[in-house]
Design a binder for these strands. Structure first.
Lengths: 229, 229
DNA sequence: TGTACATCAGTGAACGCGCGTTCACTGATGTAC
DNA sequence: TGTACATCAGTGAACGCGCGTTCACTGATGTAC
């Protein structure tokens, strides 16, 4: 009987995963404020100070949870987008949006961690920017592809100067090939997807909507007509 | 020198206002979780148990804050709507939406209390339903008035059965005179207003928007075209 | 108009609980020569 | 291949702090007759 030997680095990685696993259970059952280092330690049969070998502060642990959540969501949406043939921009839009809702429904507390009230006294480190952008980049690419496929005659023109109130260079990067006139629409579509899901999860649609999945898919269609063409 | 005599009922009302005043300061400076009965008592020079004469539990105090916030916002929006001549539905829509944003910007923590992550272990009593509906009713009435003024020829028709996934009787009441086909659009417009404001206040638009007020007013215009005509 | 009694605001002590973080330490595992 | 030293996981006690809620009580204010 040989004991499988794991290196310190391996054991360390395993322990970090264990801590995050238990923390996520607490997140799901009691919300962010219920994530407690002392309770994690208790659950793992450790003394509370032992956790400081892995996370030097509670905020650092929360950051890890946030990063994981952004990456999970981002990966789900990227996969959904990739599962539809590139030319079918409407299908890609639909798939991406449904993937967002699916993830949010399956992980309401993680969703809340990302899109609910920001944590007080918590400041997201720069680390989180890239994972947080994954979803947005997918949506922007789809909108961009849709507009690149439009006949030039169908492209609306306008002469309002938008540079004073929108960050055009940033949006141009996120929405490649999209006419400036559509930037506001893109921002609306983007924020409406999450606005709808927040309203759904936070209970503001109670009494108005019976079947949320069906309602959301109609919303997605309306938004597609609004932003893709 | 006569001491102005106040009845017990008057003194009680004054004390309740004082407690709420201090609680709101805590709400603004430290968020909901920072609202502490013991600290309120300290601020007022009272012993903590004295507060139980006025609020039998912390949740009851929070409910009072929520009610006040809903009513403040509702009143602001009702006034904005009433300040525009009734026939000008676009003007009324614009005024109402801007009033929402103005209130949210001026009271971000109260806004968060109403539209951010719901409080854990807090269940809103039925009391809050009516004040919470005030804003929605104003918006619904404007949309309804807009549709009632449309020539019948311009009213789109569709034959999709919406009753299985929307609460039609409820929506018919909130959107008097609005064709069923527009219910989804109304829900989108409604949730987008708050979705936008949440994204703004919670920092998700950072890097995309420079002048939020101007961006919001464009959003309001797009939504008006989307939902009023 | 005065007395008797009920109501109610506020006191002070206590219950029982939670938390993040620091620090000096033991003992096992890994590394360099 | 064996020894010396450094690294690191985990311990246990402590610091210093917070909270909501209950309960028996005092003393002032209001009410009914």
């Amino acid at each position: 009987m040989t004991i499988p030997k794991r290196s310190r680095a391996q054991l360390r990685a395993i322990q970090i995963d264990e801590i995050k696993r238990v923390a996520k259970v607490q997140l799901v059952t009691k919300g962010v404020s219920g994530v407690s280092l002392r309770e994690i330690a208790r659950d793992l049969g450790l003394v509370s100070s032992a956790l400081y070998r892995y996370f030097s502060t509670r905020d650092e642990l929360l950051t890890a949870l946030i990063l994981d959540a952004y990456n999970e969501l981002g990966e789900a949406v990227e996969k959904a987008d990739a599962s539809v043939v590139c030319d079918d921009t409407f299908g890609r839009w639909r798939a991406a949006c449904l993937a967002i809702r699916q993830w949010a429904s399956a992980h309401p507390h993680e969703y809340t961690l990302l899109y609910g009230t920001p944590l007080l006294d918590y400041h997201a480190p720069d680390q989180t920017i890239a994972p947080a952008s994954r979803v947005t980049l997918v949506l922007g690419r789809i909108v961009g592809d849709a507009h690149r496929r439009r006949p030039p005659s169908a492209i609306p023109t306008g002469n309002e100067d938008v540079t004073s109130w929108l960050n055009v260079s940033n949006l141009a990067q996120a929405l490649p090939g999209v006419p400036t006139l559509y930037y506001v629409r893109a921002l609306i579509a983007w924020s409406e997807i999450f606005g709808f899901l927040s309203f759904e999860l936070f209970g503001h649609f109670k009494g108005s909507i019976i079947d949320y999945e069906k309602a959301f898919s109609h919303v997605v269609e309306e938004l597609a007509n609004f932003v893709l063409y």
